[in-house]
Amino acid sequence: MAIVRKSDSLGETSVTPEAIFWKRREFIKSFTGALSVSALAPGIVLSDNTVAQKSSKMIGEELRGELSSEFVVTHHNNFYEFSTDKQEPSRKARNFKPDSNWKINISGEVDKPGDYTLERILSRVNEEERIYRLRCVEAWSMVVPWTGFELNQLISLVKPTSKAKFVEFKTLHDPEVFPGQKRGAFGSYTLPWPYSEGLTIQEANHPLTILATGVYGKPLPGQNGAPLRLVVPWKYGFKSIKSIVSIRFTQEQPVSTWNERLPNEYGFYANVNPKVDHPRWSQATERRITDESFFGVKRIPTKPFNGYAGEVAHLYKGLDLRKFF
């Protein structure tokens, strides 16, 4: 059974078509409050009753014309639990329909550990729409309209202790659901399942870091990481772990899957950096994918921190980003 929320109770005919997605929402014309201009985050669209974090005009000019189509976002996916082929996950995930009883185990250095259903979490947080750039380590990119909530809202609910320095995430491990997790499924590409990722507590608390529950105004499809995935827009896409079932707060830096598998190619931090090449290709430019024919691809320069340097660079002050890549 698919997750159903109040906003999902409308019939199929009420779902906003992609073609009028932008027309449906009026950007907020101004913003107030204590936020300074230098602290405002680009690429965010907030609900109309929320203080805007950046001028809506700037958001629209920057990303409106670059929005990747819904078909591209849902049919060009790296999700090795289903397949190493980018089009296969959309087919193999058709029967993966997690319901509202999906559980996330929260453990480690927190005052309120336990198994939390997604329904319980969603009743305590504020979901909103955000448009973010997505940059894959393979040098392709998209612009995606996510629905989700700031991870810091969940962190506030579970109350980490002062010992919590990192946050570890794990995806569902079930070979019956994910054929790619079966022994030998990918030969030399076999990964140490379950897929694991991690952030520093400062990265996890940053307002740009979200847990996504939907895309294009609809619940996340399986191939996009249903029902809950991490989105960290200034990092390479492999950091945005999908189908999360475990969140652990720890004193030690957690093991992340690709960093464990190929540490010379995939760093723990994985911040988008056009000056630090992958050992097998340049990261100076990227292929922006826009339309469903996949001919809508243009090569563009890659921006430091994927264009979010003004908001997140301070997190890495004094850190050698070539060593801690």
Rank of each mutant, 00 (worst) to 15 (best):
L199S: 08
K275V: 03
Q53T: 09
L230R: 11
S9K: 03
L154F: 12
I289L: 02
E203Q: 15
E138W: 02
A185K: 15
G184Q: 15
M142L: 10
T257Y: 05
I44R: 09
Q87A: 12
P113E: 06
V272I: 08
A185C: 12
V167N: 08
V125I: 11
T171N: 07
I300S: 05
I201W: 08
W281R: 02
K170G: 00
E81Q: 15
N126T: 15
C136K: 01
P89V: 01
L315C: 03
R64Q: 11
F21W: 14
K317T: 13
L154S: 13
E129F: 06
D320E: 01
R183P: 14
W281D: 01
V231N: 12
P221E: 03
T190K: 11
N95G: 13
E129S: 05
A39Y: 01
P254Q: 12
P194W: 00
G65S: 15
N271C: 04
L10H: 08
N205P: 00
V37C: 12
T13H: 00
E252D: 14
N101K: 15
P254W: 15
G43K: 01
I131Y: 03
E168S: 13
G11T: 05
K159G: 09
Q202C: 00
L35H: 06
S188H: 08
G187W: 14
T200Q: 08
V51L: 10
G318N: 06
E292I: 00
W234N: 04
R25G: 08
S7D: 11
K163N: 13
P304D: 11
A284L: 03
R91P: 01
F79I: 02
A34V: 02
E88W: 10
I210Q: 12
R64A: 14
F79E: 04
Y236H: 04
P179T: 05
E260D: 14
Y316R: 03
S69N: 05
S293A: 12
R322Q: 10
T147D: 10
G310L: 04
L228G: 09
E81D: 01
T147N: 10
A270M: 03
K112V: 13
S90K: 10
Q223R: 08
P145V: 08
A313K: 13
P145C: 12
W146H: 14
E286P: 04
T74E: 09
G267P: 02
T50Y: 07
L321K: 14
F166Y: 15
H314V: 01
V51D: 12
T50Q: 14
A19L: 01
P263C: 08
E127D: 03
I106W: 09
F294L: 06
I289E: 01
D291N: 06
V167Y: 05
P279H: 07
W140H: 02
S69L: 00
G214Q: 12
R135T: 02
R130E: 02
Q251K: 15
E18T: 04
G307Q: 07
E311T: 09
N105G: 09
